[in-house]
Simulated scan of single mutants.
Amino acid sequence: MSKVLVAYFSASGVTKRVAENLAQAAGADLFEIVPEQIYTSADLNWQDKNSRSSVEMNDRSCRPAISSKVDDMSQYTYVFVGFPVWWYREPSIIDTFMESYDFSGITVIPFCTSGGSGLGNSAKNMQALADGANVIDGKRLSSTVQVIELEQWVKEVVG
């Protein structure tokens, strides 16, 4: 039997709500990717080129620290990884997450929340960071996505 994890980073709470519903729909474990240094409103001001998020996203080698770890990643067959879209891709903390584990033999499914931007090159970026993983194309999910829609997507992806 396949074991599923929904791991997510949420800056405003939108991705958290979607991730909780996805975990319910998939009968999955849930893991919040929490930064060691929590983002403030000023940190998230994308219009300020000196804000923390802007600085991180302009430095592709930036890896913000995560405050906790998944106990045993190898127990999972599928890992959904959720995040808000920042600068048309996954936030740098997702890069930290992808480099923190051995995803060998695991199918990784990215999902994002966004007002309109899609995943961009996130799946490709995540694949490059997770040697041995099978990162498949994911999906942009609206903040109002219904559990029944998530259940259908899980059936399509996980079976």
Rank of each mutant, 00 (worst) to 15 (best):
L129N: 00
Y78Q: 01
V18D: 14
A25F: 07
R60Y: 08
I66H: 14
S68M: 03
Q47S: 00
D43I: 13
D59F: 06
L129P: 00
V85F: 12
A133F: 01
I106V: 07
T144F: 07
Q47M: 00
F80Y: 08
G116N: 08
W153Q: 13
W153E: 13
L5F: 05
F80M: 01
S41I: 12
E90W: 02
W86C: 12
P84G: 12
F111P: 09
L30R: 13
K124G: 04
K69T: 04
I148E: 14
G120M: 04
V135D: 01
Y101T: 06
S54N: 13
E99W: 00
S53Q: 14
R89I: 07
T107F: 04
A26N: 15
P35L: 10
V55H: 09
K69Q: 05
W46E: 10
I66G: 14
P35W: 10
I66S: 14
S53E: 14
V55K: 15
F31T: 13
L141W: 08
E20C: 06
N58A: 13
T15H: 03
G13P: 11
K139A: 10
A26V: 14
Q146I: 01
V79Q: 01
G118D: 12
V145P: 05
R89Q: 13
V4C: 05
K49C: 00
V81Q: 02
C62H: 07
V4S: 07
D137M: 01
L119N: 02
D137G: 04
W87T: 05
D29M: 06
E156H: 11
G27F: 10
S67E: 12
A19D: 15
G120R: 04
V18H: 12
S92R: 13
Y101P: 07
S114P: 11
N125D: 09
S104G: 10
Y88P: 00
V108N: 03
R89Y: 05
S68K: 09
S100N: 08
D43T: 13
R52S: 10
P110I: 02
V81D: 01
T40Q: 10
T40V: 11
S117T: 09
N125F: 02
T107I: 05
R60Q: 09
R63M: 08
I148Q: 12
A23Q: 13
W46S: 07
W87E: 06
V4H: 05
D29H: 06
V18F: 12
E149G: 06
R89L: 08
C62S: 14
I94P: 02
V55G: 11
K16E: 15
F83V: 08
S142C: 05
Y78C: 01
S142F: 05
E156D: 15
V108E: 03
L129Y: 00
A7H: 09
S104L: 06
R17H: 08
G120K: 04
N45Y: 03
Y76R: 03
K3L: 11
W153M: 14
A42F: 02
S122I: 01
N58L: 06
R52I: 09
Q127F: 01
S74T: 06
P64V: 09
V154I: 12
I136T: 05
S74V: 04
S53K: 11
S114F: 11
S67V: 09
D95N: 05
G132L: 01
K124W: 03
V135Y: 00
A26Q: 15
S61M: 11
L30P: 10
V157W: 06
T107Y: 04
C62G: 02
